[in-house]
Write a protein that binds this DNA or RNA. Structure first.
Length: 573
RNA sequence: CGGGAUGUAGCUUAGCCUGGUAAAGCGCCUGCUUUGGGAGCAGGAGACCGGAGGUUCGAAUCCUCUCAUCCCGACCA
């Protein structure tokens, strides 16, 4: 490709609406142009990169026996009602919905469990046809509450979504393991530094799930990992060995103490000269289920924090949010800061973190403004709470396997794999005839890769002040031959020759034959970030060129043959 | 959706407080010069100042509403 024939428009300044380096650089390089919030047009260069990622994804999935197909992006509402997800997705506002001329309702697919399950039910009738793993690569639509950071969180984005169908759990485990392998190869080939972590399954549901995280400070997710054991999990899911806290000792009599204006754990620590670990804070949440809401009380050791994702899972509800002040007053009869388990209305469910199990003589609120209780013993002074792991694990705590401390990092979720089980096949009565002659629901897995997000993640991880440093396998071009001055015949001739040689060697190279001055050409190449450049300039008459490796900007003046050889070697050709 | 902010030329911004009919840099077009690190000179095109009302003799500027965009929280690939 000759760059004079390609639409390239670089900007000298960062667009005002870009925040993180990858977004700025992609916008400056003309790779992406915003069409509306969360909607981007991929320019010709960007599309080259995306196609390369797509091809890598395709190769690795095909290698594991998955089959590509294509489903409609527009789904009938009825399918989503059948799976039971319509209400939740609609309530979350994620679903784009539309109507046809007759008034029939549709949505734009945010994910395709419904369609694929329906498809499988139609086409797969016998266990003899299983296992099957089907995937597609296409645009997804999600009306994100807050689109962000360019392609990182768009409302329309390119996703690979795969769905496995098996006769039983063992089959699913195998399908899942295959996808795990494929994902690792995919992200390695894309040149990303990533980590797979245990994850919460969220709205998708199912039993096991792992996320593939690209490590980056701008990542929206927090992950905890242990270098000694290899344990790694999203904070939403992570567990740890809780830090020690002083024991409450033998059960003592309940005491009520006046604590004017003492509301927070920190204030209590000072007031009672007790460690936070001896206290139990009680936090009121409003939990939402499909058909009802309820206030629940959650008890957590004073030195630890509640993990709302774990709380949602423990309650098996759709969402939780902190109660507002008014509700707290109504339920506890006291102002915020004095809630406790003693004397709460009978209908309020009380949950407590496992770290409180068996602990005695807790300091809690009294449900009376200005008072706290000492020596609260659940079971004696109030009803026995339901114990669950509700705690947010933190860096510095010990990994749950006990092998070392947890460290924290930020990550961009580029892939997620789920063991769904029969959640969708049961809901939608999608069955096959099993060996025993009985209709049996498919045991399913689902798997996603954010393709456009992966592309931007690669930029986020590979850039410097001057621009992008694409990993070679996903760069728009593997190499550029830059004719520094297109008015010089010797330069043009040599550049053409080098370009032809690279093409002949099977290298995806471009020729920068644009009639620009040298300065802008250098700047453009650095911004656009092709991994290798051969600059054909002043030395052309003597057969000398400059070979530049974009990552690190190492420059070398070499005889042309050596530069070509070096480039071929670098790309393994 | 709650909180914060911003909309002026293709891009980045000034002007707004204190109303008087829009400015600069980059980019773009033409010409000459220059030619290995975002060139110089000369000329030129390009915005009814997000939109709608209102106040006023007069509104980019003040007021109201609206739309859009970005950032911080809850969702997700």
């Amino acid at each position: 490709m000759r760059l004079s024939q390609l639409l390239i428009a670089t900007l000298r300044e960062d667009p005002a609406d870009a925040e993180i380096p990858s977004h700025k650089l992609l916008a400056r390089g003309g790779y992406i142009v915003k069409t509306a919030s969360g909607l981007y047009t991929y320019g010709p260069l960007m599309w080259r990169t995306l196609k390369k990622i797509i091809e890598i994804v395709r190769e690795e999935l095909d290698r594991e026996g998955a089959q590509e197909l294509m489903m409609p992006m527009m789904h009938p509402k009825e399918l989503w009602v059948r799976s039971g997800r319509y209400d939740r997705y609609k309530a979350d506002g994620i679903l784009f919905t539309l109507q046809d001329q007759k008034g029939s309702e549709y949505c734009l697919g945010p994910t395709h469990e419904e369609v694929i399950t329906d498809f499988a039910d139609t086409l797969i009738n016998s266990y003899k046809q299983l296992p099957v793993n089907l995937y597609q690569i296409q645009d997804k639509f999600r009306d994100e509450i807050r689109p962000r950071y360019g392609l990182m969180r768009g409302r329309e984005f390119i996703m690979m979504d795969a769905y496995s169908f098996d006769v039983d759990q063992a089959g699913l485990d195998e399908a899942y393991a295959k996808m795990d392998r494929a994902y690792r190869r995919i992200f390695e080939r894309c040149g990303l530094e990533f980590r797979s972590v245990q994850a919460d399954a969220g709205a998708i549901g199912g039993s096991g799930s792992e996320e593939f995280m690209v490590i980056a400070d701008s990542g929206e997710d927090s992950i905890l990992y242990c270098e000694e054991s290899g344990y790694a999990a999203n904070v939403e899911k992570a567990t740890s060995i809780a830090p020690e806290a002083p024991d409450g000792g033998p059960v003592k009599d309940l005491e009520k103490h006046e604590t004017p204006d003492i509301r927070t754990v920190e204030q209590l620590v000072g007031f009672f000269s007790m460690s936070a670990g001896a206290m139990a804070k009680t936090v009121l949440y409003k939990a939402t289920w499909k058909d009802e809401d309820a206030v629940v009380a959650v008890m957590m050791r004073g030195d630890l924090d509640i993990n709302e994702v774990k709380l949602v899972n423990a309650l098996d509800c759709l969402a939780v949010e902190l109660c507002d002040e008014e509700t707290v007053k109504k339920v506890t009869g006291a102002e915020v800061g004095f809630a406790g388990p003693v004397g709460l209305p009978e209908e309020v469910r009380v949950l407590a973190d496992l770290t409180l199990k068996g602990r005695t003589n807790l300091l809690t609120g009294c449900n009376e403004t200005g008072y706290h209780c000492l020596n609260v013993n659940p079971g004696r002074d109030c009803k026995e709470p339901e114990f669950h792991d509700l705690r947010t694990a933190k860096a510095g705590e010990t990994s749950p396997d006990g092998k070392g401390p947890l460290k924290q990092a930020r990550g961009i979720e580029v892939g997620h794999i789920f063991k769904l089980g029969t959640k969708y096949s049961s809901a939608m009565q999608a069955t096959f005839m099993a060996e025993n002659g009985k209709p049996t629901p498919f045991v399913m897995g689902c798997y996603g890769i954010g393709v456009s997000r992966t592309a931007q993640s690669a930029v986020e991880q590979n850039n410097d002040a001057a621009g992008i440093q694409w990993p070679a396998p996903i760069a728009p071009f593997e190499a550029a031959v830059v004719c520094v001055d297109v008015k010089k015949e010797d330069q043009v001739a040599l550049a053409e020759q080098v370009y032809a040689e690279l093409k002949a060697a099977g290298i995806d190279a471009c020729l920068d034959d644009r009639p620009l001055r040298a300065g802008p050409k250098f700047k453009d190449m650095e911004l656009l970030g092709f991994p290798y450049c051969i600059y054909v300039g002043r030395g052309a008459a003597d057969g000398q060129v400059e070979f530049v490796v974009r990552k690190g900007q190492q420059k070398e003046d070499l005889p042309v043959a050596d530069a070509v050889a070096k480039l071929k070697a670098a790309l393994g050709r």
